[in-house]
Every structure is written in structure tokens, then in C-alpha cells.
């Protein structure tokens, strides 16, 4: 069972790392897009308010969005693949 424990620990660390990196990456992309939106709005002569507040509001909206929740797929898909592989390899002919 030590082998199983080792796999679980390594897998958990790997998945946590992947999730965390993905989280940072997606937030960074979102922030960049918001900054560009603000620049565009200003260029078009609108009044989007102060830049910092615009970006922070956008990020706050992003935190509750579906896109933010979809990052969980980074964790869920490998675990599902693991389960399917375990079943196909051993319990189906």
C-alpha cells in the first residue's frame, strides 16, 4: 500500500501545482485583457473611470465566473483518466 500512498501524494502535489499555476496564468490573462479593454475604452472616448478600479472590478467579477471554475478541470480530468485507466486495464476484458 506504500506504492499507492506514494502515488497519491505525488499526484496530489502535482495536481495542486498544476491547478495553482493555471490559476495564476488565467488571472494574469484576464488582467491583461481588462487593461486592454480599459485602454480601448479610453481611446474610444468613453469614461471607464480610474484604471486600477476598472481592472479590480473586472477581476472580482472573474473570480465568480464559470471560466474561473473550469480551472478545476485541471484536477478533475486526470483523476477521471486515472479511474478509467484502472478500470479498463484490470476489470474489463
Amino acid at each position: 500500500m506504500i506504492g499507492f500512498a506514494r502515488l497519491m501524494i505525488v499526484g496530489l502535489i502535482g495536481l495542486t501545482l498544476a491547478y495553482w499555476l493555471m490559476l495564476i496564468y488565467m488571472r494574469s490573462l484576464r488582467r491583461e485583457a481588462l487593461e486592454k479593454d480599459w485602454d480601448k475604452a479610453v481611446a474610444e472616448g468613453q469614461q471607464p473611470g480610474p484604471r486600477e478600479a476598472f481592472v479590480e472590478d473586472g477581476l472580482a467579477a472573474y473570480e465568480g465566473s464559470l471560466r474561473r471554475k473550469l480551472i478545476w478541470l485541471v484536477v478533475i480530468v486526470p483523476i477521471c483518466l486515472f479511474g478509467i485507466l484502472l478500470y479498463v486495464m484490470n476489470f474489463s476484458s
Binding site: G3, R6, L7, L85, M89, N90, F91
Partner: peptide, 19 residues
């Protein structure tokens, strides 16, 4: 292969031998 590398998670050696 057990839980180790490569990750085939194969435990059905005896069954495979029978097949």
C-alpha cells in the same frame, strides 16, 4: 506494474496469463 512507473496500473497479471 502496480502503482509505479510506467502508470499502467496493471494488477491483472494472473488473468492475463490465463487469457
Amino acid at each position: 506494474t502496480g502503482w509505479g512507473w510506467p502508470p499502467y496500473f496493471k494488477f491483472d497479471t494472473a488473468s492475463l496469463q490465463t487469457e
